[in-house]
Design a protein around this nucleic acid. Structure first.
Lengths: 246, 246
DNA sequence: CGTGACATTGAACAAAGTCAAAAGTGGTGG
DNA sequence: CCACCACTTTTGACTTTGTTCAATGTCACG
């Protein structure tokens, strides 16, 4: 489990890793890199020759528009694999930035291609990661498009919790939120002022509790039904993928 | 060019198709299917065993929430290849619905896998299609997250035009919009009433003209700069992809 | 302590939603 | 050709939701 504990744990939770796959995972040669809060990992316009796995810390894919407007397209948490797509050639149309102190491992293009080749023991796991990333992105569109601010905040908190949990990084009903409310706002297309109000509201209504960075769900059935959250898009389907080349 | 004229045209515009690739394209065995407006192509929860190419008409990936709320996650236009991801196993977390009379061709899972295998002449083209779909999705997040209603509508019109044009289905400065304002609203997370107002506004300000379904850009520089549109995420990078297996 | 980053609160404001009614639009059958 | 139908679009009045601005609080850290 050299590559990333979180990555391995997350994979293992959704696709059963056999011995062959585990050894393939530890055989991946990856260079570690470390960033500080605010550092840029991938610059818009770059043509990276590597994909990345987050080891520790949070990062975000962001796009900046004119006039101080910033959108966080998605969060990257420990265990997440990202930028597989850019390997296909084009320049990155976004910026990846560290939201906390961040440690990632980069995997060379050639290595990724080898892993993706049909027949490789890890190919299914990589496919699964790519597909899940897209599912999260689609959910982000729905959330920001047709939900109220309260629903958005609640839904995002639930998603982050579930993702951290599947990497073994959160308790049953609580998790550490290492980013400020401004980041939440930029992900949800809200103002940070409103995010603050909504969080207070959720707390006053007994749906969550907060102390420093720790968020606790104090009434899970209620908060889930209030925002229509169902973790199924995060890969609730346990068990191995179809055995095929994929 | 049996598979789909639009698909072939679109591919040819972005990745140079050599003779070998063209013949691979015509060799793809695909079953044609036809739908009426409103018909469901893929139901949420299905585990499709095929991917699809749109031949004629428009479709949309939609998610419905409680209380009449519907979000269009993305539009599928002629030449678009979709649902490659579902082949990886999980159930679809969305519904695909025909927005106009629709004709698609479905490609069996095994066929797709063969096309995707490293070394297949069409693999780069398919990769390109997948990567572009993700780029469009990310742009959708940014658009709906941090743009005003006016910017959103203008930006979406420009995107649809560019996508149709790259399939050879639109004029230089105009295109036929075969869906109602309610569909635009569901894509942009707005009310259809507001979409109507915004369209009128754009027209009054000389940015677009409308007659029946035909939309014409009457001041392209202005409308592009007004909404910050740049087609680069749609694959402006002409020319072939890197020669590698990808 | 003092400082700076982040969070909260209130008041005024702006953007977009809702409701309801009127005005197109197009298709069908008499 | 016209009358009728269903559907989409437009328009106006009003409400709701979230933003902006600005002041105040809190807390970790030097």
């Amino acid at each position: 489990m050299k590559l990333t504990d979180a990555f391995a744990r997350r994979l293992a939770r959704h696709v059963r890793l056999d011995a062959e796959q585990e050894s393939a995972l530890t055989a991946v040669s990856a260079r570690e890199r470390v960033f500080d809060v605010g550092d840029v990992v991938v610059e818009r316009g770059d043509r990276p020759t590597e994909a990345f796995v987050v080891c520790e810390g949070w990062a975000a894919r962001t796009v900046s528009l004119s006039g101080e407007r910033t959108q966080i397209v998605n969060f990257m948490l420990p265990g997440d694999l990202f930028d597989l797509q850019v390997l296909a050639g084009g320049p990155a149309d976004h910026t990846v930035r560290a939201l906390t102190p961040l440690s990632i491992r980069s995997v060379e293009r050639e290595e990724v291609l080898r892993l993706l080749a049909a027949g490789s023991p890890l190919a299914p796991a990589l496919w699964w990661a790519v597909v899940q990333e897209e599912a999260i992105l689609r959910e982000q569109v729905v959330r920001n498009g047709r939900r109220t601010a309260r629903e958005r905040v609640a839904h995002l908190l639930l998603e982050l919790h579930e993702r951290l949990r599947s990497a073994g990084l959160a308790e049953e009903e609580s998790f550490v939120l290492p980013v400020g409310q401004a980041a939440i706002a930029d992900a949800l297309g809200l103002s940070y002022v409103h995010v603050s109000r909504v969080l207070s509201h959720l707390e006053r209504n007994g749906l969550i509790a907060r102390s420093r960075g720790l968020v606790t769900f104090t009434d899970r059935p209620e908060i889930e039904s209030m925002c229509g959250f169902s973790g199924s898009y995060l890969g609730a389907h346990r068990g191995p993928l179809p055995a095929e080349p994929f």
